[in-house]
Simulated scan of single mutants.
Amino acid sequence: MHIWGDHAQLSVGGRLDVRSAADARTVLHSAVDSGQGDLVLDLTELDSWDATGLGVIMGAHRRAGRANRRLVLRGVPPQMERLLVATRLHRILTIERGLTADPSTRP
């Protein structure tokens, strides 16, 4: 797993799993604590995540809320988006829809 970016946008690549969770948590919490406004988490390069990785994202979401920020997921791969829908986390997390999103769901 690798994360790059700043306090406004981070990109995650590789695997977000039990092996990388501690490092990812540290980077995400630091980004939340050091910035303002939305924190965009670009998952385009993310190969996979497990329950621990999803827990890290949920923890960052809660921390952002406490800091009056919003964690926005961008580029969520389709198989991961299906997991978010199956767990109903898509109702809690902010997922940025790309150009391929259903036009009827746009404002």
Rank of each mutant, 00 (worst) to 15 (best):
S20N: 09
H7K: 15
G59W: 04
M1G: 12
G55T: 02
L99D: 13
R62I: 02
I3R: 12
G98H: 08
L10F: 14
V18P: 09
E96P: 06
A86N: 14
L41E: 02
V85G: 09
E96I: 14
L28P: 00
G37Y: 03
V12E: 11
L43A: 00
I95K: 12
V12G: 10
R62S: 03
T100G: 10
D6I: 13
R66S: 02
R69F: 02
L41G: 03
S48P: 04
H29R: 05
M1S: 12
L16Q: 15
G65W: 04
P107T: 12
D17W: 15
A86R: 11
L89S: 08
G5E: 10
T52L: 09
H29Y: 13
R88N: 10
L71S: 04
H7C: 11
R62G: 02
V27D: 02
G55Y: 04
R88T: 08
I95H: 12
D33A: 11
Q79H: 11
T105V: 13
G65N: 02
R19K: 13
L84G: 10
V72A: 04
A101E: 15
L41V: 06
G65K: 05
A60K: 00
L10Y: 14
D23C: 09
S48K: 11
A51I: 07
A86I: 13
D38G: 01
A8Y: 11
A51G: 05
L41F: 01
H29T: 07
T44E: 09
L89M: 08
V72P: 04
V72H: 06
P77R: 14
T26P: 03
I92H: 11
R97Y: 15
A86H: 12
G13F: 10
H61F: 02
R15W: 11
N68E: 05
G14Q: 04
D38M: 01
V12R: 09
W49Y: 06
L89V: 10
R74P: 08
A8K: 15
L54K: 09
E96K: 13
G59L: 00
R66V: 10
L28M: 07
H29I: 04
G37S: 00
R25E: 06
A64Q: 01
A31F: 03
G65T: 01
L89H: 12
P78A: 12
V18R: 10
W4Y: 13
T94S: 14
L84V: 14
G53T: 13
G59M: 01
E45M: 06
G13S: 12
G75R: 09
H29N: 06
H7S: 15
L46C: 01
Q79S: 14
D33P: 00
A64C: 01
Q9V: 15
T94P: 03
A101I: 07
A86Y: 11
H61N: 01
P103Y: 08
P78R: 06
V76I: 06
H61A: 00
A22T: 05
W49A: 03
S48D: 08
S34R: 10
S20M: 15
L83D: 13
R25F: 12
L73K: 08
D42M: 03
R74G: 07
E96L: 11
H90I: 11
T26W: 05
V85H: 05
L93P: 07
M58S: 04
S30F: 00
E96A: 07
I95R: 06
D17E: 12
G59K: 03
L43P: 01
S48E: 07
D38V: 00
D42Q: 04
R15P: 12
L10G: 08
